[in-house]
Design a protein around this nucleic acid. Structure first.
Length: 742
DNA sequence: CCTACTACGCTTTTT
DNA sequence: GCGTAGTAGG
């Protein structure tokens, strides 16, 4: 077949530019994947063996798609390395990680595992001092701080050096060091380690690096704007010998800055790689002119862009439909009504997608859809593999695979109940630390540790060892585990309140069939491979665009996808853009929100609905947000308000609508400027207080009422202070607090 | 050692 | 509003 027949001149140029570094700036809907797959096919046609080509993506779904499309173009593409960053690195590590001191059977810790481990780390580090107020928040912020270090290839040692006298940084360095020691002891890697350790392996062992850089004549990286420093270094190393590195990306779609992605990687490509070429793909084949113009208008408000303007030959299309609902519930009703009406006139449910800023927003949409029998799929939220019963089974498998996995051992030592409670676990844990052996290993000394009550622990040990010694297919291991351990029995016998034991059994059965499926696909499927695949799947990977169902997902998950009709919901300040970005000191975060908005708009092919609500329920409180500031960045001639409230999209005069006035308010109150725009809640019992009222408190001085919450006997008042005496929020009860109105 | 209740904190986004 | 972590009582 003629590979060039369906390509436009720029795409064709990109396919032909095979030698040397190439930056392919590909706008949304510009045929990026097509160009990339054709480029690979072209290389193979030119005689390059598929095994000498490496293509890296961010999601399994993208990798799978790329594989499928390549195999439809050429023969023998199976042995080509096409995979995610993480899968590619794990593949490299499984071969040679022993050279940097880990066992090849290493476990991969997911985020929940990391949280547990960090909790242990911080508890040890702080002794009794902060033991009581060790909050999830601290655990997460520590994990994220350490994650950013790993993204930047900073080791615990360098971290400590860089910290110098900075107390906070020194704390991070200490936690980092100890957390890392724990991971090592458990022979486990967290997500960030997978990249970091691969770079470490390649840097420290030139022979290994050479074997890969020599092998890969051509290296291609998708979504390059989302790479972090570690990934950048990985790519650089792997392509270092032949320098045939092609990166594809769009700086306007960089939306993972919060996860350490470095937008400068793409912006500096030309500087970083000498003699590089840049090719821009600016013709959009996806959206109508209207939708594209809106996206272009919004993104033009950002600074420092590499600069490209998308254009299209597609028709003008319909105007963008704006709808402001009274409440979040009515917003969901609106979306449901629109889809049901369209479906009556023949539209397919899968033509629609509902996109939102955060997962919590899916609930109301789901409710509205469910009640009306509108078929839907939710991407994200609680993953299948994160369910308690599944994680329990997986912990058994993980322990069988890697007995050093302390977290797994501790998780299941008393699941099902074996009479080994927290006290015993603690004793065993101490013993294992003292003797520098794993938790599982320590269990073998139960007689020494707990005397007469060691029976159950020893039985557990022989149970695990017995299974480990046999060579069985994964699905049979699972069956053995769930039946012989008593796990299924226990779940069945749980008659308690939330009678979901049937569902949990079903989930476990589902896991068994996933294992069977896995065995079909992989001839000699090992336990390690099965666990690895599970650890590295994202929810989006299971999304099947052939199901006739409307899909609900976050804008982040939607990147790379397209739909005939898109609903962007919750288009409000504090939500989209997120409050955090809106109140940030610099513009960086707001610009990322704007890119996110750009991604959202450009998902639509023909029709775009943008909705918001005048009031919504946000964790127990009714809040009232202004329409998103991005709404004003869409030229009004492209939009049309729909629904009852005709003028609803106009900003009311008392609302802060410009950047300048927002900043002015911020000068007076450095935080959360929008609290003043809350309308008084419809309420009888709150008496004389309203949100936004200025009040004076004896101790804290003047402040502003931020939130009111009625309990059965009293009214809770949250006041925001910012004066000489005090800055921050305080909670009061209206009957107790002495407040003066100002 | 286990169960049941309460209180608290959470909401960005996830490979 | 909801889920979970922490605590008190059996």
């Amino acid at each position: 077949m003629d590979l060039f027949e369906t390509l436009n001149p720029m795409q064709k140029e990109a396919v032909l530019a095979t030698e040397g570094p190439l930056l392919l700036l590909a706008g949304a809907g510009s045929g990026k994947t097509k160009t990339l797959t054709h480029r690979i096919a072209y290389l193979v046609e030119q005689g390059i063996p598929p095994t000498r080509i490496l293509a890296i993506t961010f999601t399994n779904k993208a990798a799978r798609e790329m594989k499928e499309r390549i195999s439809s173009l050429i023969e023998n593409s199976e042995r080509m390395w096409v995979g995610t960053f993480h899968a590619t690195c794990v593949r490299i590590l499984r071969r040679d990680i022993d050279l940097i001191g880990y066992d090849k059977s290493f476990a991969i810790y997911d985020y929940a595992d990391s949280e547990k481990l960090m909790k242990e780390t911080l508890l040890e580090l702080n002794n009794s001092e902060t033991l009581l107020n060790l909050r999830l928040k601290e655990i997460r912020s520590m994990l994220s701080a350490i994650g950013r270090k790993k993204d930047s290839l900073i080791t615990p040692e360098i971290c400590l050096e860089l910290a110098a006298d900075n107390y906070n940084e020194k704390q991070i360095a200490a936690a980092y060091k100890s957390y890392q020691r724990k991971l090592k002891k458990a022979n486990a890697l967290d997500f960030d380690d997978i990249i970091f350790k691969t770079v470490e392996l390649l840097r420290e062992h030139p022979d290994i690096l050479n074997s890969y850089s020599d092998r890969f004549l051509y290296v291609m990286v998708d979504e390059y704007q989302d790479t972090n420093t570690a990934q950048y270094e990985l790519v650089r190393l792997l392509s270092s010998k032949y320098n045939n590195l092609c990166v594809v990306g769009d700086d306007d779609q960089s939306i993972y800055g919060w996860r350490g992605a470095n937008i400068e990687n793409i912006r500096n490509f030309e500087k970083d790689f000498r003699n590089s070429q840049v090719i821009k793909l600016e013709q959009n084949y996806r959206s109508t002119k209207t939708i594209l113009n809106a996206a272009n208008a919004v993104i033009s408000n950002n600074n420092g862009r590499t600069g490209k303007t998308l254009w299209t030959e597609n028709p003008e299309g319909e105007k963008i439909h704006l709808h402001r609902a009274d409440t979040d519930i009515m917003e969901a009703e609106f979306v449901k009504d629109q889809i049901l009406t369209a479906a009556k006139s023949g539209a397919a449910y899968k033509d629609f997608a509902v996109l939102y800023r955060m997962n919590a927003q899916s609930r109301l949409i789901e409710e509205a859809f469910f009640k009306n029998g509108l078929p839907y799929r939710i991407v994200g939220g609680i993953r299948f593999y994160e369910r308690k019963e599944i994680k329990d089974v997986l912990a058994y498998l993980s322990l069988i695979n890697n007995p050093a996995n302390d977290l797994a051992a501790k998780r299941i030592i008393n699941v099902p109940k074996r009479g080994i409670g927290t006290t015993s676990v603690q004793k065993i844990s101490e013993y294992s630390d003292k003797n520098n052996i794993s938790f599982f290993e320590a269990l073998k000394f139960s007689k020494e540790i707990m005397g007469g009550r060691a029976g159950a622990a020893l039985r557990f040990v022989s149970f695990i060892e017995e299974i480990s010694e046999q060579v069985l297919p994964v699905s049979e291991i699972i069956l053995k585990v769930i039946h012989d351990s008593g796990l299924i029995e226990e779940i069945k016998s749980e008659k308690n309140s939330d009678n979901n034991s049937e569902e949990r059994i079903k989930n476990i059965e589902e896991l068994v069939s996933k294992a069977v499926e896995f065995e079909k696909q992989h001839e000699e499927a090992t336990l390690a491979e099965f666990l690895e695949e599970i650890a590295l799947v994202a929810d989006i990977d299971n999304y099947n665009e052939n199901d006739d169902a409307t899909v609900l997902m976050t804008v982040h998950s939607a990147k790379g996808l397209e739909f005939k009709t898109v609903f962007i919901i919750g288009f409000e300040n504090n939500l989209f853009p997120a409050a955090r970005a809106l109140n940030a000191e610099d513009d960086e975060q707001l610009e990322e929100e704007r890119r996110l908005c750009y991604v959202a708009i450009t998902r639509a092919r023909e029709k775009l609905f943008i909705t918001n609500a005048a009031t919504r329920m946000t964790y127990g409180y009714t809040v009232s947000n202004n329409p998103s500031l991005f709404l004003k960045e869409i030229p009004s001639e492209l939009t049309l308000s729909v629904g009852d409230k005709k003028k609803s999209h106009k900003h009311s005069p008392n609302q802060i609508s410009t950047r300048e006035s927002r900043q002015n308010v911020e000068k007076i109150f450095s935080k959360k400027p929008e609290v003043f725009n809350f309308k008084p809640p419809v309420s009888k019992k709150t008496g004389q207080y309203y949100i936004g009222d200025k009040v004076f408190h004896q101790k804290y001085g003047e402040g502003i009422i931020k939130q009111l919450r009625e309990t059965s006997i009293d009214t809770e008042i949250i006041i925001y202070f910012n004066n000489e005496t005090f800055t921050g929020e305080k909670k009061f009860l209206s009957s107790v607090a002495k407040l003066e109105k100002r």
